[in-house]
């Protein structure tokens, strides 16, 4: 027998990760169709589609994602010769790129931020793989980046530690704009 209540986790996901301004109306429509006999799987599929489509449909979020990557890439390449791949570098780069994503996205920015931090993490892991002494990775790097010197090798511990710091600082940077807004509102009051 099907439960009368739609899946709570799916609803929570759409409410928090959905970028559409019509999230509540979409949830109302999904609940109505679910109670007309649609399955739990159908409900989940609809929620996941709404989250992805909402993200792609929001021009602000797409621009924020691109701006975040531009900030990350520019700062990383500008500061790397000065600082090397150290914790200070990843903290600064993470904080500023996270702040950029948050400032440029609309009110519902969590999906843009989640996508940004996931792709940065993926990039970081790839960077670790190509700079590792692991023989297949070395061969892969030589094949893909012919003639280029490999970046400095770092230990797995440093790589994972820096990845955690980078992710934390991205989210820390992203949490600044609302706090600043609240302070400004408090000052106006």
């Amino acid at each position: 027998m099907k439960a009368n209540q739609p899946p709570t986790v799916a609803k929570w996901l759409l409410r928090h990760l959905g970028s559409s301004t019509n999230n509540e109306t979409i949830l109302g429509d999904l609940d109505e169709r679910y109670r007309q006999g649609r399955s739990v799987a159908w409900y989940w599929k609809q929620v996941m589609t709404a989250v992805i489509v909402g993200m792609c449909n929001s021009r602000d979020n797409v621009e924020a994602f691109i701006a975040g990557w531009v900030a990350f890439w520019t700062l990383f390449n500008a500061l790397f010769p000065l600082l090397g791949r150290c914790t200070v570098l990843v903290s600064v780069v993470g904080f500023i790129s996270g702040l950029t994503v948050a400032c440029m996205s609309n009110g519902r920015r969590w999906m843009a931020l989640l996508l940004f931090s996931s792709t940065v993490a993926f990039y970081w892991v790839c960077l670790g793989i190509i700079s590792s002494p692991y023989e297949p990775a070395v061969r892969f790097y030589k094949l893909m980046a012919l003639g280029l010197s490999r970046s400095a090798q770092v230990s797995n511990e440093t790589l994972v530690g820096n990845l955690i710091v980078l992710t934390l600082f991205i989210w820390f940077g992203a949490s600044v704009p609302p706090a600043r807004k609240a302070t400004l509102q408090g000052q106006k009051a």
Partner: peptide
């Protein structure tokens, strides 16, 4: 039809 896609089209 995905309801999310319908709303994305309606927003545009």
């Amino acid at each position: 039809v995905a309801i999310g896609s319908v709303y994305a089209a309606l927003e545009r």
